[in-house]
């Protein structure tokens, strides 16, 4: 379970801009939640804080009853590594790595032996139908293939929470549909999926929609 209590995020620039303002929410295990908002509404900031890619300025963040706000950097990194996987709009693949090597990264981070890594990676690639491009460099693959690779990377680490920031934003409608289907399948398999989107049609595919505007949740 993810629980945010009175989370505020202020970016220390000249304007002291509040990206999130007293946000409180709870996401239960197994949910598929869509966070919707316009550009600049704070949705990416929210998902970054949930994913521990950024730290809240104030408030409390509880992940499976562990107070993330009180953890030091290396403890937070460990928690993130064990529980959270990301899918980004621009795929976030290392272009000069092959698909295989990109998918391998989370397993390297977890210290999984190389033989076991191979098994898991090929399983994930097969599940997404991209095992034949395993040795292709990411820069030489299509957007749809790259996003599948990103999803394979999320699957392979077997994380409890999947955070997707505009996962279909850089894809055409067909590929976008396929990616959404994959996210739904992941959710059905028991993963908690949190998706950021500005697309209402995509948001409707989620079990719950959270609206955010100017850093505040709207109900």
């Amino acid at each position: 379970m993810i629980k945010l209590e009175n989370i505020t995020k202020i970016y220390s620039n000249n304007n002291e801009q509040k990206a999130l303002d007293d946000v409180s929410l709870q996401i239960n295990d197994g949910e598929f939640v869509a966070i919707m908002g316009e550009s600049g509404s704070g949705k990416s900031t929210l998902i970054n804080i949930i994913g521990m890619m950024d730290k809240e300025t104030a408030g409390t963040y509880l992940l499976d009853d562990v107070n993330i706000s009180e953890l030091n950097l290396s403890q937070r990194e460990k928690k993130r590594r064990e529980n959270i996987s990301f899918i980004f709009q621009q795929f976030a693949l290392v272009k000069r790595y092959t698909i295989y090597e990109n998918v391998e990264l989370p397993l390297i981070a977890k210290g999984v032996p190389s033989k076991k890594r191979k098994v898991k990676i090929m399983e994930a690639l097969k599940a997404l139908g991209i095992e034949d491009i395993a040795n292709k460099y990411a820069m030489n693959t299509s957007g749809g293939q790259q996003q599948r690779a990103a999803i394979a990377r999320a699957i392979v680490s077997d994380s409890k929470y999947i955070l997707a920031d505009e996962p279909t934003g850089a894809l055409d409608s067909n590929n976008g549909e396929e990616v959404m289907k994959l996210l739904e399948d992941l959710n059905k398999s028991g993963k908690t999926v949190i998706m950021v989107t500005h697309n209402e049609n995509l948001a409707k595919k989620a079990g719950r929609i959270i609206n955010i505007s100017d850093g505040k949740l709207r109900f």
């Binding site: 994913g51 890619m53 290396s74 990194e77 460990k78 993130r80 590594r81 990301f86 980004f88 976030a92 693949l93 290392v94 990264l105 989370p106 390297i108 981070a109 977890k110 990377r153 680490s157």
Partner: peptide
Amino acid sequence: IFYSCGLS
């Protein structure tokens, strides 16, 4: 990317 994949 490395960081988001779990590398500390």
